[in-house]
Design a protein around this nucleic acid. Structure first.
Lengths: 361, 361
DNA sequence: CTTTGCTCTGCAATCGATTACATTAGGCAG
DNA sequence: CTGCCTAATGTAATCGATTGCAGAGCAAAG
């Protein structure tokens, strides 16, 4: 039996997908209601332009047929996908969970769906970020990863859809995209003020990953705050890390190796701070008796950590909601694409038990 | 100036959306390549059926025009959205992050996108779960919430698309959907065996939320394991909770109120266990010296908790990958819808420092 | 009675890709 | 040279909703 390539591909497509059992369409509703498809469509999308009686007939027909709109068809016709994609650097990082919650909630309210992907995955698969917009998969994009390759950023900027992109939490320096961020500088300053008020004069900092805008913002603010208080700052008191638990462990070991140990440590994330404290505990160093440790973020677990973590709280639900709201405004064309927006979400100091007066001596 | 309703809605639609700046279509590519749209389409979807020379001409034209496929159009024509929706009970719960990672990775490999929503949000917005499938938004659905209302389950079962639904982690008792779960019974048994081996004879259990299948599975397995070892089990040693941090705090207070305190506590989640330990610490009760505490899940932070948490590890990446793979097979029609599948993912005991021998006396 | 102006509805084009079917051009056996 | 087969491409219908335009019906104005 001879099967050539042509037959092959057709067979494959025909076999795959025990396709559907179709649901009713506008046509079916129109037939049942005894009106045209145009009228049915209008009844559903612009109820105020059809007469009372027609509206009732159509509604009844919709009920009877169990009609559900076919979004693929509507998307094609209206050139809108009614969905937005959220791009995370790392899907497995719980830091982003609440942000997604905020985004999703806002989108759902406005009838939008949320697609989620990670920049790493997109990159690995060889796709280009901008494709999500170019191929009509999403109407807009919220990027939570500031560490994009320069050529990726360039392609985003160059796209005709660049006005439907927004950064949240992180951002790209010098790129013309609107963004939502938290008060990184003020939060950092508040943290250092808190430690100084407790009597600390020797304060270390564990940073986020190199090349990250948050790392830079917080590190710069740290250096400035420490200087403002006239404190010494040997280079080894700035410990390079990233936002992970592992970085916290590593940093703790580096801190222990310091001869003239700082009495307080300001970490760029709660995860760092927790692992830092855990590693110290393994060496019988107590927090806050022997050293004070602060985090940044106020993740849910911070309060239940032992000791409960003093940290800088950023409301991630609000960050997500703000990002989604701003993006939807742009998608709706309510904001001129020239208006470079930047929303800054307030942070607050949450003093718990991981900070205290420096040890005697 | 009179504006009636008709003009209003049209104006609105026209104003909204500074629409685009269109990208090139198949037609454009066809024109540039000097072939028909059919040939371009075939070149892209079934390269083996076009001639070498045509393929080259088309590829060049695609390059030149910067063509990107319009997914809305393809979705309409092929009756496939090439996306799958993951439904979580709660988007903000970090437990699900890794599962999403596993799902997303697998989907991306196969050219699928991942939509994410929470059952609560869907419910609040008045939508019906099944709409996601009925309205062609998604080709399939992975539900991570077993606590759906009976009428919701009924509507899922009744749908012509019910064979494109799969449960993961949780499931609905007696419903005919395939599912991916972890070894809840074996994990629980292993936990109790571990505690008994350490010398514990009085073991308590903090459960998950009432009405949850995981709660039931783990509680039943707990009762059975305790019975197998011939241990006593007063009713007050089973403490009702849910998977949250708050439940852990509450449970700790209940445990402290018990006169003849159990020397070990098996918690239905790591979050419960951590908060349980934290609350005890606030009352100067030490773990594991005064009481041993175990969790379930092995979330990332378990290892960095103080003390590091003994727990039952479930590989959530694999759960996600398995769920996505199984669902895609069904979508592709490679599995008859009658074949009720159930994948069980192995768990393992991770012994750390939160468990030890019971205190003297 | 005609004209003007509304409101409501229908006709039919359209969004952009896929694919069944038709057609053309060669290759090869008889 | 004819007939048949295959490979490669083109033609045009189709997926299902939206919407510009036109027409019907009716009321009020002239």
């Amino acid at each position: 039996m001879s099967r050539n390539t042509v037959i092959d591909y057709k067979t494959k497509t025909a076999t795959a997908g025990a396709r559907p059992l179709k649901t009713s369409t506008l046509q079916d509703v129109a037939r049942v209601a005894g009106v045209s498809t145009a009228t049915v469509s209008r009844t559903l999308s612009h109820p105020d332009v059809v007469s009372e009686s027609t509206r009732k007939r159509v509604s009844a027909a919709v009920q009877k047929t169990g009609y559900r709109i076919n979004r693929a068809a509507r998307n094609l016709r209206t050139q809108r996908s009614h969905s937005v994609i959220a791009l995370l650097p790392d899907l497995a990082n719980p830091f982003f969970s609440n942000i997604l919650e905020g985004i999703s909630r806002t989108l759902a309210d406005k009838g939008y769906s949320m697609l989620v992907a990670s920049t790493r995955q997109v990159h690995d698969s060889g796709d280009r970020l901008i494709d999500y917009l170019d191929d009509a998969r999403a109407d807009g994009m919220i990027i939570l990863d500031g560490q994009l390759a320069p050529d990726v950023v360039a392609s985003l900027e160059g796209s005709p859809h660049s006005n439907r992109i927004l950064f949240a939490c992180e951002w790209v320096a010098d790129a013309p995209f609107p963004s939502v961020r938290c008060e990184n500088r003020r939060g950092t300053a508040a943290a250092i003020d808190h430690l100084v008020a407790l009597g600390h004069r020797k304060i270390a900092h564990v940073t986020g990953p190199q090349g990250n805008v948050l790392t830079t913002a917080r590190k710069d603010a740290f250096v400035e705050a420490v200087g403002r208080h006239g404190l010494a700052l040997p280079p080894e008191w700035i410990i390079d890390g990233d936002f992970s638990l592992q970085a916290g462990c590593d940093a703790a070991r580096q801190w222990m190796a310091i001869v003239d140990r700082p009495t307080a440590v300001f970490c760029a994330s709660d995860q760092i701070a927790m692992a830092f404290i855990a590693e110290l505990a393994r060496h019988d160093i107590r927090v806050p008796q022997d050293v004070s440790v602060m985090g940044f973020d106020d993740i849910d677990l911070a309060e239940q950590f032992i000791p409960p973590l003093t940290t800088i709280r950023q409301d991630r639900i609000i960050i997500g909601e703000t990002a989604a709201t701003m993006l939807l405004e742009r998608i709706a064309g309510q904001v001129t694409s020239e208006a470079r927006q930047e929303a800054v979400i307030p942070v607050s100091l949450i003093a718990r038990k991981s900070t205290g007066a420096p040890p005697e001596g």
